[in-house]
Structures are given as C-alpha cells and as structure tokens.
Nucleic acid binder design. Structure first.
Length: 371
DNA sequence: CCTTGCGGGTGTC
DNA sequence: GACACCCGCAAGG
C-alpha cells in the first residue's frame, strides 16, 4: 500500500499562486501541489486523461477504488501505485437480454480467477464469455496512478477506455455471493424457483441502476428504470440467443479470446497493438461505449449537485462542485460528485445489477439488489 | 476464494 | 531507463 503518506502535514504555505497550476501537476512530479484549495469528489468511473486530488480521508481514494476493473501493475515505484484496466467481459455470442441490454461482466482481478471466469458461461445465454481488453492508452490498457502525498491522494488516469463499463465491484461481489448461496442451498432442480424467489425479493427492494446487463447506449438508465428493476427484468428465460453456442469452451481452454486475444500474452504482439481491432479514436475521443454516458454523468456535464457521498467526505470542500463551468476543465471530465456506495453504506449504487443465471456457473444472476 | 498491494524478474523499445 | 507484464507471496475480507 501506499499508505506511507506520512503525517508530515505539508506546510500550508498559502500559496494562492498554485491555484492556477492545480492541474498542471503530473503524478510523476517530484513535488506535487502541497496546497489544494478543494479536493475532488471521488470519481467512480474516471476516464480519459484526467487528474483528481482527493482528500486522504476519502475512503474510496484510500482504497484506490475504481469501478473499472483495474489490476495492480508493478511499476517498481512504491510511491506511485499503478493500475491497468482489464477491460470487460462480454458474451461471445453478443447476446442481449430481452430489453436490449448487453452483458458486461467485471473481469476478475486475479489472473487465475479471471481465467476461471472465462471458462464460465454467459449468464444470459450460456454462450462463451469473452474478455474485451482495454486498449485505450495507445493500444495498451488505460492506466491509473495513485499517489498519497500528505493530506491528499493524487490520482491520474491515462487513456480513454475503449470498451463498455463492466459491472461494478459491488455488483460482481453480489453476484458471487448469491451464486454461492444458491449452490449451497439449492439442488439444481430448485434453482429456477430460487431465482424467481430472489427476483421477487429484488422487486421489493428499492433498487437502482441495473448495470450488469447494460446497454451501451442505455448506460443512462431511463428514469423509469430506476426502482423498477425486478419489474423490468424478464422472466427467467435463457433469453435471446439461447441455443446458439452454449458455452462450447471446454474447461481448461481459455479460448481464443480473452486474455490470449488481449494483453495476456501480448508480448509477442508488441509493436502491433492494434492487430486486434482498431482503436476507436483513442486520443481525446470519448469512449464509444458511453463511459461518458454514465448514469451519474461522470463524464457528462454537470447535472447532479454534489451528491452526498458519505463514506468519505473530503476534508476540504470538493472542487467538483460547479465552479466556473462544469466542463470547463481542460483535462476533460471534471470532477463531479460521483458515487460509489460508501463502503459499508447503503449508497446510491446500492442496487443494481440484475441478470439471471441459467448457466451452472457462478456468474450468477444479478437480478437483485446489492446489499 | 477473491481482492489488493508488493516486489522480483523478463522482454521490448 | 521506461514501460508492460508475469509470477509468487502475503494480508485481509
């Protein structure tokens, strides 16, 4: 961890002069701004080449959270934590649910777990799963950097995600635990029933933002979607593309897709990073899948006022708040109060993720509220 | 079992 | 040297 961030409370030389240079720093700078007038609200879906300064009190920042599936990358610099994006796991059949949503699962962070994950089936159609690697940073995965400095945590993102957003960590976790519960308590024959039970249960809970099965363009859940999850979810049925290609991948084989096709074994691909697919207007371009269409509008221009993002209230007033102009920042996405359920809290993201598990795998269904 | 962080090591540029 | 990545280890949930 980068905890180290000693208590050496930086001298707060009220250098108002630095205000203007607030965003001129680079994570690699020897000296980072020591005086920050306002910290940012935690950004759950940082994208593009953005920088944020969080309060060291911010729990999410402390944990280097991100809703993107970021894995730790060794940059041999203990002061700067580097993470690279794993992309998103999609259905190899490119299936959609009845309501048009796509499957965007969260890649497991652990290599082993990820390989295992790819041997499982699409929770929607039982088809094979495929890892869509991130190549938003010059053909390489988007990287995030974290650096603790005094009372601040500096964050810098390099690259624009060129893939849809995966489900959030909470969604993924919920899926797992549900699956666990399922397999623990229900004989296969009862599973469907259980699914229905849980589904109805989900209907009783106020949920929001079903993201797991998401529709690229529907990343912005229609208003009528919120709070009506269970209703909007189709009856248990191996929807749309059932039948076609039911998870053909033999266990043990990771298939041509996924890591193999991505970065996993890409050393040999060096120099030809775009062999797979062309980078959709990487630089400066918004990712084509709507990472900027966040339901919370992280990339979009200011709607929401600083939502109460409890969990970790920055010590200083977040400078996310409308200041000047919502999207005035040169670096693109301006810190906007984004949420992530405060650790342990019942945050905004609380409930989303719905999907049914027809495959006997642990890619459970996400048709229930997250705790 | 999984996530997260660390750090040694390798290969490429 | 920078960068990307692999691998194993350890702590924690």
């Amino acid at each position: 961890m980068l905890k180290g961030a000693d208590d050496s409370v930086m001298e707060q030389e009220d250098s108002a002069s630095q205000h203007g240079e607030m965003m001129s720093w680079d994570i690699n700078d020897i000296k980072l701004p020591q005086y920050v007038s306002q910290t940012d609200w935690f950004q759950e879906w940082p994208d593009s080449y953005v920088k944020h300064i969080y309060s060291s009190e911010d729990e999410n920042a402390q944990r280097h959270h991100s809703s993107w599936a970021m894995r730790n990358t060794n940059n041999h610099n203990s002061r700067i934590l580097k993470k690279s994006c794993l992309g998103v796991v999609v259905c190899g059949n490119d299936c959609s649910t009845l309501d048009g949503r796509k499957i965007y699962l969260r890649p497991a962070i652990c290599d082993k777990a990820r390989q295992k994950q790819q041997r499982k089936c699409c929770p929607n159609c039982n088809g094979p799963l495929r890892l869509l690697s991130c190549r938003g940073h010059g053909g390489y995965p988007v990287t995030n950097f974290w650096r603790h400095e005094g009372q601040f945590i500096f964050f810098q993102s390099k690259g624009a995600h060129d893939h849809p957003r995966p489900e959030t960590k909470l969604e993924a976790e919920a899926r797992r635990s549900i699956q666990k519960a399922k397999s623990a308590f229900s004989p296969p024959s009862l599973r469907l029933k259980r699914v229905q039970e849980i589904e109805s249960l989900a209907g009783a809970m106020p949920t929001q933002e079903p993201l797991l099965l998401s529709h690229p363009e529907a990343r912005m859940p229609p208003a009528n979607f919120r709070g009506h999850l269970s209703k909007s979810w189709p009856e248990p049925r191996p929807s749309s593309c059932c039948g076609q290609l039911p998870c053909p991948r033999p266990a043990g084989q990771d298939g041509p897709s996924g890591e193999a096709a991505g970065w996993g074994r890409s050393r040999s691909l060096r120099g030809a990073p775009s062999a797979q697919h062309t980078l959709p207007g990487t630089k400066g371009g918004r990712d084509p899948f709507g990472s900027d269409a966040s339901p919370l509008g992280d990339g979009s221009c200011g709607e929401k006022p600083p939502l109460t993002y409890s969990g970790s209230r920055p010590a200083l007033p977040p400078r996310a708040a409308p200041q000047g102009g919502p999207c005035a920042m040169a670096s693109g996405a301006q810190p906007r109060p984004q949420l992530l359920p405060p650790p342990g809290g019942s945050g905004g993201h609380g409930g989303h993720g719905l999907c049914l598990d027809y495959c006997d795998n642990d890619l459970g269904f996400n048709l229930y509220p997250l705790r």
